[in-house]
Design a protein around this nucleic acid. Structure first.
Length: 681
DNA sequence: GGTAACTGGGTTTTT
DNA sequence: CCCAGTTACC
């Protein structure tokens, strides 16, 4: 067993103070790159060595990767269950508890966990009945309804408030939304569906219950929460209910890095901790071990400052190159400049995987990706569209969900519609005939339900349903996953022209699922921690290969690279035009930019296109002139080296005369009269 | 009555 | 690229 001794080596006095803190609740205010993770890991190990049973220590994080990483560092890999520190994301831990007591929550044993896209699908089927379709006006679409709903839940605020504050254009539809959300609750309950918000709400409800709460609280002596600035109202309350007096609580966070307001999170929860726990002790980590001084000087300038929690970081890594701002003629020039600098760095010995391009929105790298491909620079992209959002993957997951939870109406709807000749109406009718929630199982009623379908498609659909029914009868996850895939082969082949590649994806997915103890666990895992790409399922196939990293700024949180490139530093892109309307939106964009800049260890390159395609500000045309991001203020620019990229050189003299010549040649083709030579008009 | 195929307009961030 | 609205076919 490794003790905490090794983990304490090399910690500075601030970090040691945090690690060996005893008594009242502790908040570690940890700036970017100050060794936050190492400190939290060491504290978990130190708590264990000071006598707390490892399984009674709970470590809560926001991403699975963070949880796995920290648990691996805090303890030997082969530790027995009782010797292991407990940890995971809020959602995963909530699921573990709910799953263990499914009946108490009135849920079927293999209830379906649905993601945001599924929630939007449900909203879509309920929108008609709630007067949100065909009004002749712009109504909130399914995804917007899902967002509004989730925002209400995550901030524990009434619908009217949320709509007024964040969706003012939806105000005329507040009543419709209210009734839609009411239907949504009933729908989920009837079909055994649990969304991300429900996982947290059910956990909180159990904790708030007199009897259950005492039991659940009693499971842990110490609770450590990572990235506390990212908790929403529900998660903050879960933490309070877990440690009502504060004893044994450690929270780590940095309010300048709060970037999940759209998920209902906000830095105010971190600041509210001191009010909730009057004896809260605050330890500040201010020594930055990540970035060279010039990068950190810029970061400190960009860091939003708040009352009370100010944090100024000092660099421990010595001097380096000034951050560079490269002004580019347009986005194409920007793409070439990035490629050029990536290659220069590579020539100088920096591997591609030691460089990252951090974008505000996934689409901002579209043009760059074309340029990278053209130059043969390999890259991986994180964030943006996920593997589980691909249509065929959703089809597979839906089919598997039918097998695990036959009452899952949403899954039936998707699988039935997959077949040729079956649209929303016929699918709905057949599902109504199945009477999903009545025992014994809907499969038994398929023969009668399929009579409402047109003759010509009955055979194909029935085949799929029979196969799923037999998959439901199988014991082993391995067999079930394989049977689900077998059921989908024919319909997928008929549906997608590129079905071969899609089926190959699904083979891998089925293989990965087969390793889980149950189909339910496999589905939950896939939903709560979706692989970014199909290649993630089979591990990294080619470890030796070198890829440039493209990531959204959000997905880059907590990571670092020696060289970081940040493109699109124009108002409307950074900050996003979606956030310009409110002060709080703008403040969050600033924090996001701060997060991006603090990812760089050695060198930081920033790019500002002076013209942007699709640039949307009032009065701009399609090739509007962009304005440098407002975050690079005059003060900030003093800490940068600003250079202008070579503008693209025109190949030839102005082309207008040539175009006129081509036109007149063509004109001669169409003129019935005797062809003439090029006219000079 | 219902589906498929086409067309035109819009697109943040994620557990 | 996805969604809504429209038209053409069964």
């Amino acid at each position: 067993m490794i003790g905490s001794a090794g983990l304490l080596d090399g910690l500075n006095d601030e970090q040691l103070l945090a690690v060996r803190h005893v008594g009242p609740p502790l908040l570690i205010l940890a700036g970017a790159g100050t060794g936050k993770t190492g400190t939290l890991v060491a504290r978990a190990a130190w708590l264990r060595d000071s006598g707390i049973q490892p399984s009674r220590i709970l470590l809560l994080t926001f991403t699975r990767r963070a949880a796995d990483d920290m648990l691996a560092r805090a303890q030997p890999p082969g530790a027995a269950a009782a010797e292991r520190i407990c940890g995971g994301t809020f959602h995963a831990v909530a699921h573990r508890i709910i799953r263990a007591h499914a009946e108490a929550f009135a849920l079927p044993p293999e209830f379906s966990v649905i993601d945001t896209a599924d929630v939007a699908d449900v909203m879509d089927t309920l929108r008609d009945a709630n007067g949100l379709v065909g009004t002749g006006r712009r109504t909130p679409r399914a995804a917007a309804c899902a967002e509004i709903y989730s925002r209400c839940v995550a901030t524990s605020s009434p619908l009217e408030e949320v709509v007024a504050a964040a969706y003012p254009w939806c105000e005329p539809f507040t009543d419709q939304l209210a009734s839609l959300f009411g239907d949504f609750l009933g729908y989920k309950r009837r079909h055994g569906l649990v969304d991300f918000d429900d996982l947290l709400l059910l956990w909180r409800a159990a904790l708030a219950d007199d009897a259950a709460g005492a039991a659940l609280r009693g499971l842990f002596d110490a609770v450590l929460v990572d990235e506390y600035q990212d908790v929403n109202a529900v998660q903050a309350e879960i933490v309070r209910l877990l440690r009502p007096g504060g004893a044994g609580l450690t929270c780590v966070g940095d309010d300048a890095q709060a970037i999940y307001a759209f998920r209902g999170a906000g830095p105010e929860h971190l600041r509210a901790l001191a009010g909730w726990y009057p004896d809260l002790q605050i330890v500040r980590l201010t020594r930055n071990y990540r970035s060279r001084r010039p990068v950190l000087v810029l970061a400190n300038e960009l860091r939003p400052h708040f009352d009370g929690m100010a944090l100024c970081l000092s660099s421990q890594r010595g001097e380096g190159q000034l951050p560079m701002l490269i002004r580019c003629h347009d986005e194409a020039t920007q793409a070439r400049e990035i490629c050029g600098r990536v290659l220069d760095e590579h020539e100088a010995g920096v591997r591609l995987s030691e460089q990252a391009v951090l974008v505000r929105a996934a689409q901002h790298s579209d043009l760059l990706e074309v340029e990278l491909a053209a130059r043969g620079i390999p890259f991986v992209k994180y964030g943006g569209l996920r593997f589980t959002e691909a249509a065929h993957v959703k089809d597979f997951i839906a089919a598997a969900r039918i097998v695990a939870n036959p009452a899952d109406d949403l899954a039936w709807f998707r699988v039935l519609r997959l077949h040729e000749g079956i649209g929303p109406v016929l699918a709905r009718r057949a599902i109504d005939g199945l009477r999903l929630t009545e025992p014994p199982t809907p499969f038994a009623r398929w023969q009668e339900a399929c009579r409402t379908l047109p003759q010509r498609c009955v055979a194909a659909v029935s085949d799929t349903v029979q196969r799923l029914a037999s998959a439901a009868g199988l014991e082993h996850t391995n067999d079930r996953a394989g049977a689900v895939l077998a059921a989908l082969r024919d319909p997928l082949r008929a549906r997608y022209p590129d079905s071969a590649a899609r089926l190959a994806d699904l083979e891998r997915l089925a293989d990965a699922a087969a390793a889980s103890p149950s189909l339910h666990e496999a589905l939950v895992q896939l939903t709560l921690d979706p692989p970014a790409a199909a290649s993630d399922l089979a591990g990294r196939p080619r470890l030796d290969e070198d890829f440039l990293v493209i990531s959204t700024m959000h997905s880059a949180k907590g990571l670092e690279w020696p060289v970081v490139h940040v493109p699109q530093l124009a108002d409307g892109a950074v900050p996003s035009d979606m956030a310009l309307a409110s002060d709080s939106g703008l403040a969050e964009e600033q924090r996001l930019f701060y997060v991006a800049v603090t990812r760089a260890r050695d060198r930081l390159y920033m790019y500002a296109p002076l013209r942007m395609h699709h640039y949307r500000t009032p009065s701009s045309d399609r090739h509007g002139y962009a304005q440098l991001t407002r975050f690079l203020t005059r003060a900030a620019l003093k800490h940068c080296e600003v250079i202008d990229a070579e503008p693209p050189r025109p190949l030839l003299a102005p082309l207008a005369p040539l175009a006129a010549a081509v036109d007149s040649q063509l004109r001669s083709l169409f003129s019935a009269a005797a062809p003439r030579g090029p006219d000079t008009a």
